[in-house]
């Protein structure tokens, strides 16, 4: 269980998060949605400890994450933009991350197979295409068996087959009983995978609940329109 208590974040004068309170239950897939600049990435990075909150606290398994780092052993994170050191090969990168994580039980072989990354293993990361980099990114995220998975825009740059594979992957991880947090702008994808929606608007939680609750609340027949109606209301 991840508990977020009164989270505020300011970058200079720009207030991104203005008091987010949220409890993320275990074994659920939670989608964090919101328009551009609503604070999704800041929110996720706060959980990872990459962004330090101006106010508020994040409690993970009963402990505050302030000044802690060991808790990151329990998190697999997929960053939004897949940027890697350019002069390493894919294989070296995989081995390096394994070495840094000190987990011997990494399941990289099956994932290499799944995403057909075999021919790229000895290529330098700087020479890979955006989509292939994203596949490597996904591989690095899913090769460990951690109870929490955080995915920031996992679908960007993926071809349709890889997208289907990713969905399958998320599905199997869910069945293993993992907590998964996702941000995405692809509404179909969110609708397919998410159990719960958290909608961020101007740094606050505007809505939290299931997709059917959201449809009810907005009186819209489908999910995409429900989200659109929140956005038009807020921009009006």
């Amino acid at each position: 269980m991840i508990e977020i208590r009164g989270l505020y974040k300011k970058y200079g004068k720009n207030e991104v998060l203005k008091g987010v309170d949220l409890a993320i239950e275990e074994k659920k897939i939670v989608a964090v949605l919101g328009p551009n600049g609503s604070g999704k990435t800041t929110f996720i990075k706060s959980i990872l400890g990459m962004v330090l909150p101006s106010k508020g606290d994040i409690i993970m398994e009963g402990k505050s994450i302030k000044k802690e780092w060991k808790y990151r052993n329990n998190i697999d994170y997929l960053p939004q933009i897949a940027n890697f050191p350019n002069n390493l090969t894919v294989k070296e990168l995989i081995n390096m991350i394994k070495d840094l994580r000190q987990k011997k039980s990494a399941d990289d072989g099956a994932l290499v197979e799944l995403f057909k990354l075999e021919p790229f293993l000895n290529k330098k990361l700087g020479n890979l295409s955006g989509g292939t980099k994203q596949k490597v990114n996904i591989l690095l995220t899913f090769m460990f068996d951690s109870p929490i998975i955080i995915l920031d825009e996992p679908t960007s740059g993926l071809d349709p087959i890889s997208l289907i594979r990713l969905k399958e992957l998320i599905d199997t991880e869910k069945k293993k009983g993992k907590t998964i947090i996702i941000t995405s702008h692809i509404m179909n994808f969110v609708e397919e995978v998410a159990d719960e929606i958290v909608f961020l608007l101007e740094g606050k939680i505007y809505f939290k609940g299931s997709i059917s609750e959201l449809k009810e609340k907005t009186n819209q027949p489908d999910f995409e329109h429900a989200i659109a109606s929140i956005l038009t209301q807020s921009y009006a």
Partner: peptide, 16 residues
């Protein structure tokens, strides 16, 4: 130049 690498490391269980 190693900003990307640093970003990758920051999400790992390593003291900052």
């Amino acid at each position: 130049n190693s900003k990307e690498f640093t970003g990758l490391l920051l999400a790992q269980p390593i003291k900052r």
